[in-house]
Design a protein around this nucleic acid. Structure first.
Length: 575
DNA sequence: GCCGTTTTCGGCCCGACTGTTTTCAGTCG
């Protein structure tokens, strides 16, 4: 069992799953879930808390008992309670809970009465008609569960934000043509800019709700309708993405937005405040007794709780409510704050467009400077540049800068960090550049210590400006390599180099939590597109999304600076 | 299992939709 925060969170989540299957006390289960969430997003590694015993109990939602369990996991790398729970259940049973339509009650009945222990066995049992024979299960539920289990086995379970954005924008355009639409919002984790989303939640404010619902159900990409009602309908698209539509009355748009944007944890915290103040809050409004006192706008909902509006990206119950109460919420960075991009490829390495075309696209994306950072020779598959080809590109950029208007091109490279932490080209070559972006593209499997030492050593090389995609993860494809991010951040601060927030939709690296760690460590970052073609700059919005989720302000990001000030910072990294 | 400026015990968020029902349990968000 892993002792990283994510690992400890996963242990508590698994315990909660098993307790749920055992139908344990619901509040006890919630305590484990809350703890898992808190730990998962905690910006400092819990394994480093060893200086003070009982420090864990100071975390919100962690009491004496869970603190002891965390201590056990950190010390021994294992958790006796989880082991016992695993012994007491068939392994695959937990996976049944991931299938829509199956909760703890049905899962345990399926196990006890039909011998179903995995999603695959559920499919077999449903095909054999063994479910409809069970009391309360009926033929309709049998076919629904068969479909849901098959779909679960066939596809991934969460979608990248960029994919969700394409879908959301297409459906929104389609629904907008419906008569009487007053407003259309995509809420849920999409609005909070979570790196992956499980489904889309669309809120439609309309004079004639039935017309919108009808049009929604007739969307050409709908594969099947899961449910339909006057206020809520739910479909699965042909690509497998689930989309929910809520029809909202104009006077409750604000409370519906709050409710359906979530997160769940944020909403629970809001409702608790409301309750303490003798109010009730739901998707229709805020109520004092029978009287409705707010709901038309999000601002009105927060105001009744004595809070300023909280940006969607912060609504994770990670301290935003406390900060809002003290009027200390950060003024989050926006896309328009970005003046430049510091990580861009051309067809000189593995990009798909020429230098001139990429620069032109950067200008059209509203940027006033762009750094060209093709790969270095060590990345053979990307046709990386050696010293000679780099020298020719430098000359090319010099000539381009003499003639181009409205944008300045900076000379850079995305250089391989070799296994021993040295760089792929000598400092004598790198000194001609404006910046050096260092990256790990090999030896992902080094131990945590060796990987960390490798990157720290790279930062100490004479020319090192920015650490690209610091954890190397590819969303849904490759886990981050083992590395002590906390040390990287501290070291970058001392060395006065920077960490990247890579905005490529497959990476988002640093992610939200990494951004928050950088901020708490007093480190500035660079939000870069890693563009490989002219459309790549559009990804900057997703990097901004992670940065906002990580509480970053414009002043936390170096490529919001005017070129002159940025040059001063970069120059200092090149010695 | 956590928490407390009324509480160390008794609370812990709330409504929609579905299927199998005969008045409601289960799931979801």
């Amino acid at each position: 069992m892993s002792t990283t925060n994510a690992g400890i969170g996963a242990i508590f989540d698994e315990i909660a799953d098993w307790l749920e299957l055992d139908q344990a006390n619901a509040f006890r289960i919630r305590a484990y879930r809350n703890a898992a969430r808190t730990i998962d997003s905690w910006p400092k590694p819990l394994a480093d808390f060893t200086d003070r015993p009982n420090a864990y109990a100071e975390l919100p939602g962690i009491g004496e008992d869970l603190a002891e369990k965390i201590d056990e996991i950190v010390r021994t790398g294992s958790c006796a309670q989880l082991k016992a729970l695993r012994r007491a259940h068939p392994r695959g049973l937990r996976e049944l809970l991931r299938i829509p339509g199956i909760g703890p009650k049905r899962a345990s009945r399926l196990f006890r009465e039909a011998g179903v222990t995995t999603p695959r066995r559920l499919v077999v049992a449903a095909r054999a008609g063994r479910l409809s024979a069970m009391k309360g299960f009926g033929p309709r539920m049998e076919t629904d569960l068969l479909q849901a289990a098959s779909a679960y086995l066939a596809s991934g379970h969460r979608w990248k934000l960029s994919f969700a954005a394409q879908q959301a924008e297409a459906i929104s355009r389609y629904l907008h043509e419906s008569k009487g639409i007053a407003s259309l919002d995509v809420a849920g984790s999409y609005r909070r800019q979570q790196e992956t989303v499980g489904d889309l939640d669309i809120l439609a404010c309309a004079s004639r709700g039935t017309a919108v619902t009808r049009r929604f159900l007739a969307y050409p990409d709908v594969a099947r309708v899961l449910s339909q009602g006057p206020t809520r309908s739910s479909v699965v698209l042909k690509n497998g993405l689930q989309v929910d539509l809520r029809v909202i009355k104009p006077d409750s748009l604000g409370s519906a937005l709050v409710y359906f944007t979530g997160s769940k944890a944020h909403n629970v915290a809001l409702r608790r405040i409301a309750q303490k103040e003798g109010m009730k809050i739901n998707e229709y409004g805020v109520y004092r007794g029978e009287r409705r006192i707010a709901g038309e706008t999000e601002q009105s909902v927060y105001a009744t709780l004595g809070l300023p509006p909280i940006p969607p990206e912060l609504r994770e119950n990670r301290g935003e409510i406390e900060c809002a109460r003290q009027h200390r919420l950060p003024a989050l960075i926006e896309r328009s704050d970005l003046r430049g991009d510091l990580h861009v490829h051309t067809d000189a390495s593995d990009g798909h467009a020429s230098l001139a075309d990429m620069v032109d696209a950067a200008r059209k994306a509203g940027l006033s400077y762009v750094a060209i950072t093709d790969h270095s020779r060590g990345l053979g598959v990307a046709h990386g540049l050696d010293a000679d080809r780099l020298a020719r590109q430098i000359d090319l950029i010099d000539r381009l800068n003499e003639t181009s208007r409205g944008i300045t091109v900076l000379k850079g490279i995305e250089i391989e960090i070799l296994e021993d932490g040295t760089l792929d080209l000598p400092a004598s070559v790198l000194r001609r550049l404006d910046l050096v972006v260092g990256a790990v593209h090999s030896h992902f499997k080094l131990s945590r210590t060796r990987q960390t030492e490798r990157i720290l050593r790279a930062m100490d090389q004479p020319c090192f400006s920015i650490l690209a995609h610091p954890t190397g993860r590819l969303i849904g494809e490759r886990e981050a390599y083992e590395v002590d991010l906390d040390r990287l951040i501290r070291h970058a601060g001392e060395r006065k180099c920077f960490l990247e927030v890579n905005a490529h939709p497959d990476r988002l690296d640093l992610n939200d939590i990494g951004c928050r760690m950088a901020r708490d460590g007093g480190m500035r970052v660079a939000i870069c597109s890693d563009s490989h073609d002219q459309n790549g700059f559009a990804a900057l919005r997703f990097g901004i999304g992670q940065a906002r989720r990580g509480w970053l302000q414009s002043s936390d990001v170096i490529n919001t600076l005017p070129l002159k000030e940025l040059r001063t910072l970069l120059k200092a990294t090149m010695t």
